[in-house]
Amino acid sequence: MKVAYWPGCVSRGFTPELHGSMAKVAPLLDIELVELDRASCCGAGVIAEHNQELADTLNARTFALAQQVEGAELMMNICSTCQGAQTECQERLDASADYRAHVNETLGEHGLHYEKGLSNKNFLWLLVEEMGLDELRSRVKQPLTDLRVGPFYGCYIVRPTDRLGIDDLKPRDTYLAQVIEALGGTVIEYAGAYKCCGFPIITMNKEVSLKQAGRHLGDAVDQGADCLVTPCPLCHLNLDLQQPLAEKAVNRTLNMPVLHLPQLVGLALGLEPKELGLQQHIVKPTSVIDWSTSVVAGV
């Protein structure tokens, strides 16, 4: 499957292991990534907060670039925040022909044009809806047997449900759990799965932000998770990079590894933790590496 691939900013900045692991995993799933290296930041809701039309136009440009990729079936992202921020812009663009024409006028200067109806899916959605869980299961080399994984979705990919097309037919807010199971892992239920990591207010109210991260991590610890997995690199920043500070904020030791979704998929497809950049995390994924070693030893 050929996709117009939007990696986002953070996956190439502070979480380079995300972009790296996606690149490793894609060929194993027969996904051809055509990187949208000309596209700009989605704005993460912050640019829209400053100027809605500006965010809409920047993303319309990205969508237009995606629509130019020959033979691509859809646009794929690897960031919950990109998914949410871009879908919000797309909702407006698709809802109003008048507005779309207005935005396209700005893009026209650069020979670009957005047509309504783009399909833009996070890697998570693509796994379930395009590839299918059976297909994914059939490609698993090292089932995540006995690995207890807590899903952490990130707000932008689960709310609001109507905008994101989450309904009975497409229960996208259950996909992470479904994928963990398909990979052979055990899903850990804990209070924080659908909550906010706190990242958006890290510069505005650091204490509250870190407390949010700390609580969810603590809940996962209490439920016996070996690690968390998230499709959102911004959540990863608050949950992993900031975890030492979050520990202080909630006054407890957490030591909870947090994996990017492609890393978890990669492990099950037989890739080594190191190939997937797990050693680059702030919280050493000891439990995951131990599991990986024991599986390899078991084989």
Binding site: A4, A66, Q67, Q68, V69, A72, E73, L74, M75, T87, Q90, E91, D94, A95, A97, Y114, E115, K116, G117, L118, S119, N120, K121, E129, E130, D162, R163, L164, G165, I166, D167, K170
Partner: peptide, 24 residues
């Protein structure tokens, strides 16, 4: 409509059809 905007069936409708507003 919002759901359909990124539903799987339509694909990258605009890019494929190359015609304005022809999203199925």
């Amino acid at each position: 409509a919002a759901a359909g905007a990124q539903g799987g069936d339509g694909g990258m409708a605009g890019a494929e059809s190359g015609q304005p507003g022809q999203s199925p």
